[in-house]
Amino acid sequence: MAEEEVNLSVAELRDIATRACLACGASAATARSLVDATLSAACHGRPEVGFPHLVDYLMSMVEGRIDAKAWPRIEHPLPAFIHSDARGGIAQLGFDLAYEDLVKRAQTFGIALFSQRNSYTAGELGYYVRRLAADGLVSMAVANAHALMAAAVGGKPVFGTNPLAFGAPLPAPRAPLVIDQAASATAFVNIIRAAADNVAIPEGWATDQTGAVTTDPAKAVLGALLPFGGYKGANIALLVEVLSAGLSGAAWSLDAGDFRSGDRSPNVGLTVIAIDPVATDPSFAVRGADHFRRLEDLGVHVPGRSSVYGADDADVIRIDARLLDDIMTFIPS
């Protein structure tokens, strides 16, 4: 049976999500950062890690995996290096607080880096590069999480899904180029959704507790995700972990806390590298747009949900009614 969906404006969903965050003990700053990132995923990026993932954040605030009132400590160990300790809070708040400084340093030095430890999971990774692309910067973002993925069939979980995102500006009103993908064959939220709906998953996504490949999502939840492309995907996961947990001082995926259970911060890492392309090519965005049109004419899929970027409070978002009910349960009646 098809899921029942309801249409709500961005303004309505912003209000509901904000009230839910505040009801779970979030500070105004934490609520604003988390809701902005959630709406960005729903409107412009990957909806499956937008409002569905918001429920994980809300539950984690209630159960202690997120310090909902944490205020990041931001330092500058080098002129082009910004380092944040999220202090057990959400990843988005530290990035938001450092954002203007990151852009300014990238424009000044040609490249700048933001790295953060001791946070909850980074959410939709495209959010970080999408914002920087809107300000004319090329960027890459990487993040690790607790061990969910084996390096190969039969192995134990050693990496998170360890996503990597890349963004590049294009002339307005065209949406920026945003590539956002996990090192795993699929995102963990897709396994959870399939288990809830009792729907089989494709072969090659995951293994069961014995290390055997499975199409049963309930067994996959107790087993391990698999990397895309075999050892090549596992190599990407290792690269991501070195850049995110290694540079930031966060926990390696083997040591990180579970983002869905327990009462402590996962202490995972996020690193964002921003580059100013106009340093060598003032026409970078226009030249890129021309090239991407050629690629599209040749049948290449260039990532991006729409040709026009930007949403206002008149826009409507379709949301699963059950998901909306789950979010509403956090708001006192």
Rank of each mutant, 00 (worst) to 15 (best):
V6P: 04
L13S: 04
R14H: 08
I16M: 03
C24R: 05
L34Q: 10
L39R: 02
A41Q: 00
P47I: 08
P47C: 04
F51K: 11
V55Y: 06
R73H: 12
I74V: 07
I74W: 10
H76R: 12
L78H: 11
F81R: 10
I82C: 09
I90D: 08
L93T: 00
G94L: 01
F95M: 07
A98W: 02
Y99W: 11
D101M: 11
V103I: 12
F109Q: 05
Q116D: 01
Y120E: 08
A134H: 14
D135L: 09
D135F: 10
V142C: 07
V142T: 07
A147S: 00
A152Y: 12
G155P: 00
K156L: 11
P157L: 05
A168L: 07
P173E: 05
A183E: 03
T186C: 13
I192R: 15
A194C: 02
V199C: 14
I201A: 04
Q209C: 12
L222N: 14
A224P: 00
P227T: 01
A234V: 07
V242L: 13
L243S: 03
A245G: 02
S248L: 00
G249W: 01
G249S: 06
L254T: 15
D255M: 08
S265N: 12
P266F: 02
P266T: 00
G269V: 06
T271Y: 07
V272A: 01
A274G: 01
D281W: 08
P282D: 08
F284C: 04
F284L: 12
F284W: 01
D290I: 14
R293W: 12
D297T: 14
G299D: 07
P303M: 00
R305P: 09
A311K: 14
V316K: 01
V316W: 01
I317H: 05
I317T: 00
I317V: 10
M328H: 14
